[in-house]
Amino acid sequence: MIDFDSIDWSDIGQATLDTLAMLSGSLILTVAIGLPLGVVLFLASPGQVWANRVAHLGLSLVVNLLRSVPFIILLIVMIPLTVALVGTSLGVVGAIPPLVVAAAPFFARLVELALREVGRDTIEAVTAMGATTRDLVLRALIPEAMPGILAGITVTAVALVSFTAMAGVVGAGGLGDLAIRFGYQRFQTDVMIVTVVLLLILVQLLQMAGDRLVRHFSRR
């Protein structure tokens, strides 16, 4: 029977905060790592300034490897590394390293794709001006690919929200974890509904904010 009286709202509040903390922490680090990685992937691809078959293949392989490991496995396999990095493998802090390791390669690919949309003529024109590679990246490639990069950040943020649901395995809490433990395992359908609705609102807000930013930066 569904009655919302039995819900412990402070649990829900804490879970929401945990989800937001995991999301914002891991998203910032994912962008900080994935963006340069995506730029390097692009620059090393055939026909670009650092064109290097071996480097591109090697990086691609690592990126694909990390993308193909199921997150739940990554979460467990990474425990020693997580402890080394942040001192604990538990809680919100313990969940962030695996979240970043899962999301950064995914985001890097999206960045590489966005950069590929920048016209050949544009890249040649900027190179022909006497630009250094740094100028090329900062003044041309990233500004030109900004709408695609922002769309990539949005997709990555939404993916991270669903990854956080599994972070309960390491005791990180969050809305997804609450939905599994109470909603699913204890048959508390009301908790299930509330958490799913909150996740839906979160995803919807992320998507709307992302779309708005993409539109703001689109000049084509």
Partner: peptide, 8 residues
């Protein structure tokens, strides 16, 4: 030919 301008 395709100008190569920064659209942004």
């Amino acid at each position: 030919q395709q100008f190569g301008l920064l659209s942004s």
